[in-house]
Design a protein around this nucleic acid. Structure first.
Lengths: 337, 337
DNA sequence: CTGAAAGCGCTTACAG
DNA sequence: CTGAAAGCGCTTACAG
């Protein structure tokens, strides 16, 4: 049919002509205004269909000073934790009639800045951001100054006032560590993670559990590394070379644990039998890793949905109080520990 | 500073006033037009900075009939293969000055239709689509009729004329199967995958390798299932119950292979020792699974970058010939097979 | 090299 | 319930 090449686009004016009404009437029909009688509305819709009319949101949003796009910024899609979060965020946002402007920063603050600016220029109605490591704390104030609703995800950005959705990291790791202690382990490692608030919070939970049972915190059993599969593989190997050899470890996250599982396997050891291992996140893959991973469930997809809901709430009610949503960690015991 | 609440936005008119030039001059400066002498340009930029001006792309794009957004539609971010592709696509697009409108369909054609419509209304400059199962073949023509450049990714959509980026599935699986045969296996299973062109292509490669060595294709050793970890787990279990028991299997993809690894481990078996297993994709995780997975490398991230490049090319040169990019599969041998 | 003017496609009061 | 008019913030010929 009508290929709208570089020819004039079909606009509400054309629809108006075809349906023999005014252009305001068409506009009203398009937003389902109750002012228009059903039969007129039907006639207009029919005409629109027939001449192949497509609504131009850019024009509408420019005039109406509204926006149906929301910026979502993540930095490590390669980690299924973030991929699952993104799925949750996107789903909720699309359900609410928005469309997501997505950007991936790979922990690069400059890239994040650029993308933030583009989203601002694009007139996004709001922002969901999992800040890259090294993001200045002032960012929340800046974005507020732009008049853009923002919810920070997963990694807090200092003590300021802003909406946040994340997990109770301290309690989660505390529970995982405690589980290991109760199973009789006394030399327990902590592997993976190199920097950032999330690591601090998790380490705090780790130390708290140790302290509670009067177990010494052995600096030697804390092996930092990138929070990746490779990081987990390397730190697990390092840990196994410590003497006396630890018998268990809690991992910074599931991905690190998967790497650790690989290292264990390489030595002919099996988590759950020769070594106890706990993950964190409960990414979908954890249920069927080799062996299935015991971990701390923070329901990533749900977390994403919550972040989206908080943003949607603030867009609707700009004045409402700041929200902080922390998912309650739940221990899920499978075979690794 | 200047919170642009619901107050009037600062526009190029304000910048013009502040810099004491006309508004067209400001517009020209913003697009780095050589028409404007450097010192004037600098004055304008300075004024813009000072009064907190932010470019309004919606207005610019409406007037100029251009667009800096590109729609990217995927359906299973939970599979790292697609997540890695998305990373590649996004990176390339952002580098070229675009921003991605992203949508996740979970294999739901209706959802895909809705999102497609929204992207059209938003005036996306182009589309990168990995079509959900069940997408009608007519879609490529429809989108062409809208005047939107489109590149289809991973799953072909019939024999029509459209840009495509994917992998040579047949050759890839052929190579994997042949590797198993050369290692002496004669009873080889094929697990995972339930429907779609990609499965057909991969099965074709599987059969070809078998036929070439005069091995019979045993219907019993083909176990279809969702292309997921769970699917892999279940099909591996089913396969191990066949008699005589097969000694090797090629998997629909890496994720299926990971599930199979889990099933094997549960029975105290280890891939590479008690059973040979080949994956497909070479997702990052494959390098450090337990044990590391032998697989067919189709470089997902690169594939995404290529898809983006093809689209960018078509946007620039609408008349150019259709492109079909197929990544050359490379066998990567690790421990599982 | 810079300014005045028209217009992208819509929405929103305001009359009638 | 419907029409005429102004305007969202920009770009693009066109004069000068």
């Amino acid at each position: 049919m009508s290929k709208s090449n570089s020819t004039r686009a079909v606009t509400i004016l054309d629809v108006a002509a075809a349906a023999e009404v005014s252009k305001s009437t068409v506009s009203l029909v398009l937003k389902n205004s109750p002012l228009i009688p059903p039969d007129t509305a039907e006639r207009v819709r029919e005409a629109a269909r027939k001449i192949g009319y497509v609504y131009n949101s850019r024009a509408g949003e420019l005039r109406g000073k509204t926006s149906k796009t929301i910026g979502v910024i993540v930095n490590d899609l390669t980690n299924p934790f973030f991929a699952e979060i993104l799925v949750g965020v996107e789903r909720k946002l699309v359900e609410a009639g928005y469309i997501v402007l997505m950007a991936h920063t790979s922990e690069d603050v400059d890239r994040q800045d650029r993308v933030l600016r583009t989203m601002r220029e694009q007139g996004a109605a709001g922002l969901v951001l999992c800040p890259a490591y090294g993001t200045p704390r002032s960012l929340t104030r800046d974005v507020e100054g732009w008049g853009m609703p923002l919810v920070v995800m997963v990694r807090t950005l200092g003590p300021g006032k802003y909406d946040f959705a994340g997990a109770d990291n301290e309690r989660g790791i505390y529970a995982a560590t405690r589980h290991l202690i109760e199973a009789g382990h006394t030399r327990i490692g902590f592997i993976g993670g190199r920097t950032g608030v999330v690591l601090e919070q998790r380490l705090k939970g780790f130390r708290a559990a140790l302290a509670e049972r009067n177990l010494a915190f052995d600096e030697d059993l804390l092996v930092p590394a990138q929070p990746t599969r490779t990081g987990g593989y390397e730190t697990m190997n390092a840990l196994l070379d410590r003497t006396p050899r630890p018998t268990a470890a809690v991992c910074y996250n599931d991905v690190v644990a998967f790497g650790a599982l690989s290292a264990l396997g390489e030595r002919g050891m099996r988590a759950g039998e020769d070594f106890a291992l706990m993950g964190f996140d409960n990414v979908q893959d954890a249920a069927l890793s080799n062996p299935p991973l015991s971990t701390v469930d923070i329901r990533p997809c749900e977390l994403g949905e919550h972040a989206a809901e908080i943003l949607l709430g603030r867009i609707q009610t700009p004045g409402r109080a700041r929200q902080t949503f922390l998912v309650e960690p739940r221990l899920v015991l499978r075979q690794s520990g």
